[in-house]
Design a protein around this nucleic acid. Structure first.
Length: 437
RNA sequence: GGAGAGAUGGCAGAGCGGUUGAUUGCGCCGGUCUUGAAAACCGGUUACCCGCAAGGGUACGUGGGUUCGAAUCCCACUCUCUCCGCCA
């Protein structure tokens, strides 16, 4: 959500943002509905005022006067009721429009139509092309079969397409990656922007089935409703990321500024319908209906510089994990056409995957300014005592099993065994290599 | 799942049909006093919407109903607490 006043005063800015982001929204219709709402509201307010004053008079009136006033007010009552109904409908219409309005992207964000226009920021580590592995190269699916660590067939048997079961060392590897990432986040200490305090990230365990209000509040509804598993009879949905419950954690709250920033991370299973991706990435562990992810979320003051500071910090956290895993990656900045409705700036981390002969998305770091905070009614009281909407940010720490693709493929030996990265061994009882049984 | 109790401002806690957006206490902010602090005293202290302002409106868990008028009465739902049952 963006500020309605901003739309009223700078409609062209919003239209430009929608163009840059390739979004459909109707600013003119919104402004027309807004004007209508305000007119109805004025009329309603005046009528209610009259009603209240009459109420006082009736209380003190004589018997005869009372009868006359009561009869007169009965008419007003009918008009108030119909106005109220109308107002409700108009407010709902306005809200519907508001939910489609884009956050204004940062001036520094690259303009572009699609991911093809994203801009590489930096590369870390050495890549190795598929061909460099020679004739014995196996992609992660072949390696998994060879090592008997993923059962795709039975995953599909019990849960349908895009499902899988990690097995034995595969399940252990998955768990090890998540535990390493968890420990990296637990140990992380960062300075507050003013340098006065040392802060830690607080781990949370959160519900993965949440109220639809949070899906709307974090920006997944209404535009991405198709991608979500709905539990409609309960008004709840399965989350595609713990960003949803963690960002929503403080909704409807307004703590004093001194309690910000809030730094969190949480692990959750993530559920995605992958609607609209039919036939795409059907092989292997890349695009699947469920996975586990550790996500980091920052809620901070409404300050663009501070938001930018935390954005860099949470990207650094993810990079730290990738470096511990000895994986080559690059950071790209997403262009306006690729970044989605709510974001101001967005960076993806893409990890090198030999089977794809390309860097592929494994992380996504977004900065929303007050977009989510407005929808979630997530505020704070600033030092002057004024209510402000917070800024929110989030980034992947690690998502598995997608990250197992580069781990397996890059660490394979010619005999089809896989070397386990050193940092993971403590989480796998010291195991150094996964070999066929 | 069964039985009971409850949901009011940052917290505690009144109000049970009519100048109550809400007595009061605590907390918080400002002031007086003081070398300073405490205490005491005085004043202020919900959010949102419309409006340049004056001012007006909305909100007492949520939704509906009764009424000229509802925090107050009625119905449904949600949530919390206590007890019982079941269960990880």
């Amino acid at each position: 959500m963006i500020d309605l006043k901003l739309i009223r005063e700078n409609p062209e800015l919003v239209r430009a943002a929608a163009r840059d982001k390739r979004l459909n929204c109707d600013v003119d219709a919104l402004l027309a509905v807004d004007a209508r709402r305000r007119a109805l509201e004025s009329e309603f307010d005046a009528l209610r005022h009259r009603q209240k004053q009459a109420g006082e008079k009736i209380a003190k009136a004589s018997k005869e006067d009372r009868a006359a006033l009561t009869a007169e007010m009965a008419e007003v009552k009918a008009r108030v009721a119909s106005l109220e109904t109308e107002l409700e409908a108009v407010a709902a219409e306005l809200h519907g429009h508001m939910l489609l309005m884009p956050q204004i992207p940062d001036a520094a964000a690259p303009r572009g139509a699609s991911s093809a226009d994203n801009v590489e920021v930096r590369r870390v580590g050495t890549t190795r092309a598929r061909a460099d592995f020679g004739p014995t190269f196996r992609d992660h699916v072949d390696l998994a079969a060879h090592l008997d660590i993923v059962d795709f067939e039975r995953g599909v048997k019990i849960a349908g397409t895009r499902n899988y079961v990690l097995k034995g060392a595969g399940a252990a590897l998955h768990e090890a990656v998540l535990r390493l990432a968890w420990d990296v986040m637990s140990e992380r200490r960062v300075n507050s922007p003013d340098g006065a305090r040392e802060l830690a990230f607080t781990p949370l365990t959160v519900p993965v089935l949440v109220k639809d209000r949070l899906m709307e509040g974090t920006g997944f509804f209404p535009l991405h409703r198709d991608e979500v598993y709905l539990c409609e009879r309960d008004g709840q949905s399965l989350v595609g990321t713990s960003e949803v419950p963690v960002t929503g954690f403080h909704m409807d709250e307004a703590p004093p500024e001194s309690e910000l920033p809030r730094l969190y991370f949480a692990r959750s299973t993530c559920f995605r319908r992958e609607a609209g991706a039919a036939g795409k990435d059907t092989r292997g562990l890349y695009r699947i209906h469920f996975f586990d992810k550790i996500e980091q979320v920052v809620v901070c003051r409404a300050d663009a510089a501070e938001s930018a500071h935390w954005h860099a910090e949470i990207i650094a956290n993810a990079e730290r994990v990738l470096q511990r895993l000895e994986l080559p990656y690059r950071v790209v900045e997403c262009c306006t056409g690729d970044m989605g409705q709510g974001k101001v700036r967005m960076f993806d981390i893409e990890t090198w995957m030999p089977s794809r002969d390309a860097y592929s998305e494994t992380h996504s770091a977004s900065r929303f300014h007050d977009f989510q905070a407005r929808r979630l009614n997530l505020r704070y009281r600033d030092s002057a005592g004024k209510m402000q909407y917070c800024h929110t940010l989030n980034n992947t720490v690690i998502a598995s099993p997608r990250i197992l693709i580069p781990i397996l493929e890059l660490n394979q030996e010619t005999d089809g065994s896989v070397r386990i990265p050193t940092a993971l061994r403590p989480y796998m009882a010291g195991l150094e290599r996964i070999a066929p049984r």
